[in-house]
Every structure is written in C-alpha cells, then in structure tokens.
Design a binder for these strands. Structure first.
Length: 278
DNA sequence: ATCGGTGTTGGAAT
DNA sequence: GATTCCAACACCGA
C-alpha cells in the first residue's frame, strides 16, 4: 500500500509532532512487529529517549533517537503511523504498537494485516535490516540521473515493470506508481528493460520523478488503509490516470484500458498508448 | 457463504 | 545471479 509518496507524506506530517518528546512508555501488542531483538529489550532501549530526526529511505521511515539509536519502520501493506494528541482516544482494533510521550500525546502503529515491521538499530547500521541495506537509488534525489537509470536498465532482460518494482534498483516505487509512470511515458509494462530506446528511457525517467512528486503534493493515494500521520486520507486517488481503471476509457486516446498480471502484480495499461511491440 | 484478490517483501524454488 | 512464486494476515466484495 504505502509507496514512496505515502511514506514521505507520513514523514512530513509526523515531523512537527514527534521530535524532542521523551518516550515515557512503549506498548507492543503484536510482538512480531519487532524484528531484530526481543520486544522487552526494544522497549527498554526506547523509554526515556526522544526522537531527534525523522527521515525516509525508499518506503522506510527512519526515526533518529538520542544516544545513537535509530528506529526503522516499514508499513508494508496496511500499516499506519498516526500521531494522537490525547491518550483517551480509544485504540484502533488492529493497533500493533504505541509510543507514548507523557502528556505530549502518542504515536500509534496500526496495521490490519500485521505485516509492518520495526527495527531498532545503532544509527546508520542497517546490516540487520535486509531490505534497507540493499536499497537502490532514491528516485527523487540528484543521484537518480538519466545516466544512472540507463546503467540500471542496461542488459536487463526482465520486464520493465519488474525492474521498476525491484527495490534494490530504485527505492520506493510500488504497483500504483509503476503503472502510472509507465502510462505517462507510453511504455508497455511487459517490454523488456533492455529493449527501451534512449528516448523511451528519458521519458520514463522523467515520468517517474513527475508522478512521485505530484503524488506527494496530493498527500498520497488512499484506496482503503493509507492515512497520513494525522490520520487523514490522501487525494492522489483522484488524479490517477489508469491504476484501478480497467475497462474505463484511456484519458489520452479513449481506448478501453486493460489489465493483466505482470510479474505477479495487477497491471493496468492502455493497449493503444503503450504498445507491446515498439 | 465461500473464494479470489489486495497497495509489500523475503525466502525458497527454479 | 536472475527470476518466479508464495506465504505472512485480515478484510472485502462478488
């Protein structure tokens, strides 16, 4: 569910309300959520410390703590990180963890499917967080140049959509934004990566950055579970061009939009604007 | 009411 | 190594 724009929106919304507040207590309701150490050790290490910064890498949220620790959170499919100013608000049914800041409110991790994860690591030491350790280039950073993208694609026979979803190549794209980027660039999701022309690569490179930036401006896409750090819905679902629009008309040419499984994922495309054979 | 599908990822199998 | 498939879990809609 939450892809780069959603995670970035959560980061921006939480930033002003979770820093510099000592953690008074931590409740773990779903022990499994804590990955790399026992839950009681996790609690003991957190209590008394404050978050001093909140950054993002791909779909990971990185809470820097006093004393050289870092809390790494991943929302997976249905996770939410929401700040509540009052502890008297009843816990949501699927609350996995609560970080309390005394009288200064609390941060709750809610997660219907319980796939979300928390890791507490020495600051910057991501060796125990496998997906984070091997994460690819940040698509909105200056490091994601056209040259870098060409290197990633060079000689790769895999389908371009599979490559876009591969977090060790580019960090943060998920199913929605992969489909939207490919539509914006006019490229069929099943084209082999190495078959893309220089012009197509340039269009796709630009499309990825534009789609992600636009989605952040709209606070992400809420289909069902995703919420910002304040518990609000995003609005980019109203701006989507093709994701979830099987059978509707292509916004560019009017042809009926199709979908099929590509790389195991539901994939939407326009059979006219995105040709299988270039 | 049962069943297939859901925005992610890692590990096993190929 | 590259790629594909499936499980982890709960819910929703057909």
């Amino acid at each position: 569910m939450p892809e780069l724009p959603e995670v970035e929106t959560v980061r921006r919304s939480l930033l002003p309300v979770v820093l510099a507040k000592p953690i008074s207590s931590v409740d773990i309701f779903t022990e499994r959520i804590v990955q790399n150490r026992p839950a009681d050790e996790f609690r003991d290490l957190l209590v008394g410390r404050s978050f001093v910064d909140l950054t993002r890498r791909g779909k990971y949220l990185l809470f820097a703590l006093e004393g050289g620790w870092e809390l790494v959170a991943h929302l997976r499919m249905t996770g939410r990180l929401i700040y509540y100013s009052s502890p008297s608000i009843p816990l949501a049914k699927h609350t996995s963890a609560v970080f309390r800041f005394g009288a200064e409110g609390e941060l709750r991790f809610e997660d219907v499917r319980k796939f979300g994860t928390l890791d507490l690591v020495p600051a910057g030491d991501y060796r125990s967080v496998k997906g984070l350790y091997t994460l690819g280039v940040e698509p909105l950073s200056e490091a994601f140049t056209l040259d870098r993208f060409q290197e990633l694609v060079h000689g790769r026979k895999t389908k371009i959509k599979s490559l876009l979803l591969d977090q060790t190549k580019i960090a943060g794209l998920g199913n929605i934004y992969a489909d939207e980027s490919l539509f914006m660039a006019g490229i069929h999701p099943e084209r082999s990566a190495e078959s893309l022309t220089a012009e197509e690569l340039e269009r796709l490179h630009t499309a990825i950055r534009e789609v992600l930036q636009l989605a952040i401006e709209h606070q992400g896409t809420t289909f069902r579970d995703y919420r910002t750090g304040f518990g609000r819905e995003g609005s980019f679902q109203n701006q989507l061009q093709i994701y979830g629009k099987k059978g509707e008309e292509c916004p560019r040419c009017g042809v009926s939009l199709q979908y099929r499984k590509v790389a195991g994922r539901t994939s939407h495309f326009c059979p006219h604007c995105q040709r299988e054979q270039p």
